[in-house]
């Protein structure tokens, strides 16, 4: 328990240890600690950012989906409208066509009727002439009365 030179030795040793600690121990470890702290903070921040981006993307995708649905509904409605229009148009066209056909048929019928009348007229005249010829064969020359017959035919 005597105070002796151990005191000085201890003081020098302490000084050297502190110097060594300050030079080789403290700075690298605290640097590593600080770097890790920064890494963790960065990681957390980027995680937070990713989460935020995911949220945004989800929101955007739902928006896009919603818009697409709306568009599809619009298109369907438009198509239905167009379909109805097409049907209406076709009906209209069919009616017009039908009328045209009816008109044509009527004209043909009329024509047919007038032709039949003509034929009938001719046949009636022939029949009358043949009758008259039969009657007149005995009395009249057919050739002499041809012009009378012709004017008769015209007057029918």
């Amino acid at each position: 328990m005597n105070i002796n030179a151990t005191l000085i030795a201890q003081a020098i040793m302490f000084g050297l240890f502190v110097w060594f600690c300050m030079r080789f121990v403290w700075p690298p470890i605290t640097a590593a600690l600080a770097a890790r702290q920064k890494q963790i903070a960065d990681g957390l921040a980027s995680g937070e950012r990713g989460r935020h981006e995911l949220e945004l993307a989800a929101k955007r995708s739902s928006e896009v989906l919603h818009e697409a649905k709306q568009r599809a509904a619009e298109i369907v409605a438009q198509a239905e409208k167009r379909g109805i229009a097409v049907i209406e148009e076709a009906k209209e066209q069919a009616k017009v066509e039908g009328n045209r056909i009816i008109t044509g048929a009527r004209a043909e019928i009329e024509q047919e009727v007038s032709r039949a009348k003509e034929q009938l007229r001719e046949n009636v005249a022939k029949l009358a002439v043949a009758g008259a010829e039969q009657i007149l064969r005995r009395e009249v020359d057919a050739k002499a009365h041809a012009d009378i017959l012709a004017s008769l035919k015209g007057g029918l």
């Binding site: 080789f24 470890i29 770097a35 890790r36």
Partner: peptide, 16 residues
């Protein structure tokens, strides 16, 4: 001993 152990850790200190 203390400085040896700590300095060894300090030299190979990783941020991982």
């Amino acid at each position: 001993l203390f400085l040896f152990v700590f300095a060894r850790v300090a030299r190979s200190a990783t941020t991982g």
